[in-house]
Design a protein around this nucleic acid. Structure first.
Lengths: 235, 235
DNA sequence: ATACTTAGTTGTACAGTCCAACTAACTTAG
DNA sequence: CTAAGTTAGTTGGACTGTACAACTAAGTAT
């Protein structure tokens, strides 16, 4: 009989991965990193979600680890960040039983052009996928992230976090439409957004080749707004 | 330079916990287990969520581990089970950096009286809490589970999983009201449920001291239904 | 029979989306 | 200066589903 209950049984590998979304070139894009090409690494040279092992000396908690990964690849410090779920199994990593804690982040449009790590690159989301074949089960995680995002966009103000600091209502609507991949009604969209305690006009207009549009900004420190209906009966 | 990248750095402890809900005595209840009383254990004698370490030899994946834990404490094999999220930090377990993958389950009413493990007991959920002080950060996990459940009940058919095989619409409405902790409108509730492709009448009535009520059952293998509105503007 | 209770229905009001047509403000071409 | 084209923004009616309240239906108990 031992003093302490046994703790030296084998433990799964523990990682954190972040699905980082931004609007670029009028499309929903996701940031991927290329894995090292050494043959000793799993999935050498493949594209993968940014992430890696939890550093039990340096990371206070899971979210701190996600924030660290996000900052390392994008330089962005406090975007919208939400836990997505976890994936763990005996087979997802050839090195052994492993579990990953997945997060997803929404970057405002202007930050998405900033300081990128050298191994990182943006990819357009097509359907719920991305062109290259991803390492591990990252395609599945990405799909879950896209589905979660699309679903929440139906009844929340999440796309506001993808906008630059100042934006017009047609621009915001366009972002909704990009994420949902379907057109929305202009007047219903405006009614919904303006009724919510979400945005406020600034004393400027966006000028273009035709009628100028009112510029708005997010009310400060705004948590996402939840609406009580979805848009279109999506059926 | 080594052949393989290092993998022998310290790894966090990895556990799975399950928040198991059922309706008992006209109230929302949650199943807790008492921790061993040996002083060598963390939180000796305290109540905790059912769960424990992932067994990398026996558990194929996280969900299998959750199902195993659920079956061990309740005997139930395939109730509604949903991933809730994960909690990991340096301080949540005195034994060291630890991460738990939390699930929540909804048990149908009749199974909730069945074969309970000896160390397990049902507790009424009051607000988002339970009377006894819980081990680890389990109070926080329980709160997250209750909030998630309440929130989803506004626009899904989740409470149907808490019902016995056959039930009446007033009984289903009562379950909604217990979870939400507020009354709902009878006619709107009936309209919503009957319009959904969710339940079907059986050729029986529930008899009581007054007018009998039509009995229904879930249509087979029904995934939860999502409605496009919430109930009451909950404001 | 009458009162009481719960099941279930009916009808009106209301909120917010859907749809379509309209007005407003700007640029560019003649 | 005017007309055409484009996008911003508004307006009004149809429709859907909830809120609210009053009603009918079917049983028990007295």
């Amino acid at each position: 009989m031992q003093e302490k209950p046994e703790l030296d049984f084998p433990r799964p590998l523990t990682t954190v991965d972040v699905v980082i979304f931004a609007i670029r070139s009028d499309a929903l894009q996701v940031l991927l990193v290329q894995r090292p090409k050494a043959e000793s690494e799993p999935f050498p040279g493949a594209w993968a979600l940014p992430g890696g092992f939890v550093d039990i000396a340096g990371d206070r908690d899971l979210e701190a680890c996600a924030v660290r990964r996000l900052k390392a690849k994008t330089g962005v410090v406090s975007p919208y960040l939400e836990q997505l779920g976890s994936w763990g199994s005996a087979t997802r990593d050839p090195r052994g039983w492993s579990a990953t804690h997945a997060y997803f982040a929404l970057l405002p449009e202007h930050t998405a052009g900033g300081a990128l790590a050298g191994d990182a690159q943006w990819f357009a989301v097509e359907g719920e996928k991305v062109r290259p074949k991803l390492a591990f089960d990252h395609a599945e995680i990405l799909q879950a992230a896209v589905l979660r995002l699309r679903n929440k966009v139906e009844y929340t103000s999440l796309p506001a976090y993808l906008m630059p600091q100042e934006f017009t209502l047609p621009e915001l609507q366009r972002t909704y439409e990009i994420v949902l991949d379907r057109p929305l009604e202009k007047s219903a969209f405006r009614t919904r957004m303006l009724a919510a305690d979400l945005i406020e006009p600034v004393a400027k207009m966006r000028k273009g080749p035709n009628r100028p549009a009112q510029l708005y900004r997010l009310k400060k420190a705004k948590a996402p707004v939840f609406f009580t209906r979805t848009f279109n009966p999506p059926g």
